[in-house]
Design a protein around this nucleic acid. Structure first.
Lengths: 152, 152
DNA sequence: CAAGATTGAAAGCTCAATCTTG
DNA sequence: CAAGATTGAGCTTTCAATCTTG
């Protein structure tokens, strides 16, 4: 039973690692934006006004505040995002999705979705998919509760 | 259904990311070796002679050949591993677990196992554990088959 | 020339320190 | 002084080039 406890964990590490690498390679070969960029743009696109404070952006992704700052630098350099001071709070900065950013996101989306399907979801039957979703969501949420504020 | 296809994937990314960070923090607080070191030492310990060629070591972990080279440098520096030329193939190098390495591994093991249990396995019921293991193992193995040689 | 391994340079990421505004 | 964000320095990881042996 103790040995079995690590079996699930090892399977998790291996599966994610391999699927992730495969998807990233596929996106690169297709000439679309990298996964980290995609994740950031996706969150901006999903929100009214297509804009978020840096901090909220970090909270929605798997990225640290510092990392988001650097990524947004790059995205601004590529013209996919622009920065603007938050009118409601002079300390905060808004990251805003540009039209070019939306377009890059739309171009990458089918590649990403196909990658997920090909290298992960499609390898499972519907039943397994649902089981995994339920169980791993439970894990992720448990961590949210255990981590008091927002520590990344 | 298309939205659901990404749900499993997102849950995977979030769950692993959070559990991994929590476990690493716990190991650091406990003053035992880091997770990457642990993984390398564990593979060496699991094999007859407690020695592996660099390449085989990389193949058993989630690490690239290059990364393993650097990690073994550090492990040698810490006295936990030693290098020796492979008598059967002059091109190859063997990484060999030292007594100090075994001891470091044994000291870290309970912390690591407790971390896995506390931040991952223990958050699931036995049924879910088994489902996850089965499904994710399937994914990991599918990738092994799809990647012809050993590409990392 | 291919396979095994290592190395230099560069990219990705994180920590602690800093700057600015509330 | 706390909160939001950025920056400098340092560690981790990867890519391509290199060295050595089969």
């Amino acid at each position: 039973v103790a040995a079995d406890s690590t079996a699930a964990w090892r399977a998790l590490l291996l599966a994610q690692n391999r699927a992730l690498r495969a998807i990233e390679q596929q996106m690169e070969r297709a000439g679309v934006i990298a996964l980290t960029w995609y994740d950031v743009l996706l969150e901006l696109d999903a929100v009214p006004g297509r804009r978020l404070r840096m901090q909220d952006l970090a909270a929605r992704t798997v990225l640290s505040r510092t990392r988001v700052s650097r990524l947004v630098d790059d995205l601004v350099g590529a013209g996919l995002v622009r920065r603007e001071p938050d009118p409601d709070d002079g300390r905060a900065t808004l990251a805003i999705l540009t039209p070019r950013g939306r377009s890059a996101l739309r171009k990458a989306a089918p590649v990403y979705l196909a990658g997920i399907d090909q290298h992960f979801t499609g390898l499972l039957d519907p039943n397994e998919r649902q089981q995994i979703t339920r169980a791993l969501t439970k894990v992720a949420e448990a961590h949210e509760l255990l981590a008091p504020p927002r520590r990344r």
